[in-house]
Amino acid sequence: MELFLFILLSILCIGAVLGMIIVNNQAYSALFLVLAFSCTAGLFALLDAPFIAVVQIIIYAGAILVLFIFVIMMVDIKEGLTPEKKKWTMALACILAVVLLIELLVALKSALSPMATSVSGQAGNASEIGHLLFTKYLYPFEITSVLIIAAMVGAIVLVKKKDSE
């Protein structure tokens, strides 16, 4: 049952990312990515991380991509973009990416042989993560909140149109 869910979610995720690359329209790419992120959240839930799965859906699929789609709709692009003029750069990029893939898979095989099975520790529910966040990772937590405020203020200041007065 778990294997079936894993295969379904992985194939859907990889297919969605492939669709995002192939489609020419930006809005469809963003929608494919919503599907990919939801499948990733499902994979997180399979890996005993329910809190992170729900946080991924709320923040990534539910807020960041809505922001993307907002910007795509405000940037008034013509339907689709003209395809790339120099075709050989695309082919070279694909070949190099496949080389990188093979390298990473070989590195994975040699690095993971002692760790073939997984230890079933505790599931990552909210109270345990909260406990860790407020004791061991307190400094990153507080600094991240300052970072978010800086990003908010920065985004508003950047986009605000200066009235000529």
Binding site: V34, P50, F51, V54, V55, I57, I58, A61, G62, A63, V66, A123, N125, A126
Partner: peptide
């Protein structure tokens, strides 16, 4: 599930789409 309230919030954020 352990994160019941957050599950409802997640589904509500999908209805925005």
């Amino acid at each position: 599930i352990d994160v019941g309230i957050l599950f409802i919030l997640a589904m509500l954020s999908f209805t925005v789409y």
